[in-house]
């Protein structure tokens, strides 16, 4: 009645085989599943033409003429418009034989932000990552694009320490039609109250600032040394319930954090004399730390390259 016993490894392969998108006679060979989100799966593939690995995002289920289909196509075009070192570069748009659309992007060889944080407790290092994230988001805002689904699962760190924003699947570009009022777009844990209420016409750059605030709060938690009052105030201001109480832009959030890092007062926290004292002490320490870090880096460069 049934054939040979299937090992766990065989089942894993069969599962993947049943799911693998069919790329027909394109120059890409799909190799493995890289990750999965609410909309699609991302596969590692090999570009046989150029001899390099790429990542291909495909929708979960073939449904000709579906809304998701148009969404992926839009996502691809948005990504193409957002050429920036902090946003994953897109290479190609594919039409699969089964009617689905897929896009080809750079294969990021690194960790997702949530995975990265598990192995990086250092506060300064975490903040540097966050600053880069703000920079990329600010760039998207500059181009009229609101991401609407910023969360650690949608951010990756590359091999060279670059921070890449992914997944513009539910992003909105200025001038595009909005969803029907009441549609909830985003991820519960990170979404702004106006998003959770489905007030689609009120969602703007500040909704992304809210998500950034939530991400920052997550990065401060468990950091070493523990985050102090001004830092926590920055995260709280960014993720305030009222959009008007938040930073007006990702760039503003970023510059307040930079002020903190260089020992200047932050806009998120009116200083008490005690705060001021603590800040000045820290400022001094930060300078020492920076010099040490610089010397360590020079040392490392000397050791590895001899230059």
């Amino acid at each position: 009645m049934s054939g040979a016993w299937l090992s766990d490894a065989a089942i894993a392969r069969l599962r993947l085989a049943a799911e693998l998108p069919e790329l027909g006679s394109s120059r890409y060979e799909v190799r493995a599943l890289l990750g999965r989100g609410g909309m699609g799966s991302v596969y590692l593939a090999h570009d046989t033409g150029l001899g390099r690995d790429v990542a291909i995002k495909v929708l979960h289920d073939p449904a000709p003429g579906s809304a998701l289909l148009a969404r992926l196509q839009r996502e691809a075009r948005l990504l193409a418009r957002l050429e920036h070192p902090g946003i994953v570069p897109i290479h190609d748009l594919l039409h699969l034989p089964d009617g689905r659309v897929a896009y080809v992007m750079q294969h990021v060889q690194g960790a997702r932000l949530d995975q990265h944080l598990a192995g990086e407790r250092g506060l300064e290092a975490r903040l540097r990552v966050f600053l880069k994230l703000c920079e990329s988001v600010a760039f998207a805002h500059d181009r009229g694009v609101v991401h609407r689904d910023l969360k650690p699962e949608n951010v990756m760190l590359g091999r060279f320490g670059e921070v890449l924003v992914l997944d513009f699947g539910v992003a909105h570009a200025a001038g595009e039609p909005l969803e029907r009022a009441g549609t909830v777009v985003g991820t519960q844990r990170y979404m702004a109250p106006e998003q959770a209420r489905g007030e689609v016409e009120r969602i703007d750059a500040r909704s992304d600032v809210h998500a950034l605030g939530r991400i920052l709060a997550g990065m401060l938690a468990g950091a070493e040394p523990p985050a102090n009052r001004p830092l926590r105030a920055i995260a709280a201001k960014a993720s305030a319930d009222d959009p008007a109480a938040r930073y007006p832009s990702a760039a503003a959030l970023r510059s307040d954090l930079e002020a903190f890092l260089s020992g200047r007062p932050v806009s998120a926290l009116p200083e008490t004399p005690l705060d001021r004292l603590a800040r000045l002490y820290r400022r001094h320490r930060v300078a020492v730390w920076l010099v040490a870090a610089y010397l360590a880096m020079r040392g490392a460069v000397l050791l590895t390259t001899g230059r």
Partner: peptide
């Protein structure tokens, strides 16, 4: 839907 997943409104469709 779990709190960590992206939402894009409800879903309902039959798999043939």
């Amino acid at each position: 839907m779990a709190g960590g997943d992206t939402e894009i409104g409800g879903r309902d469709d039959r798999f043939p």
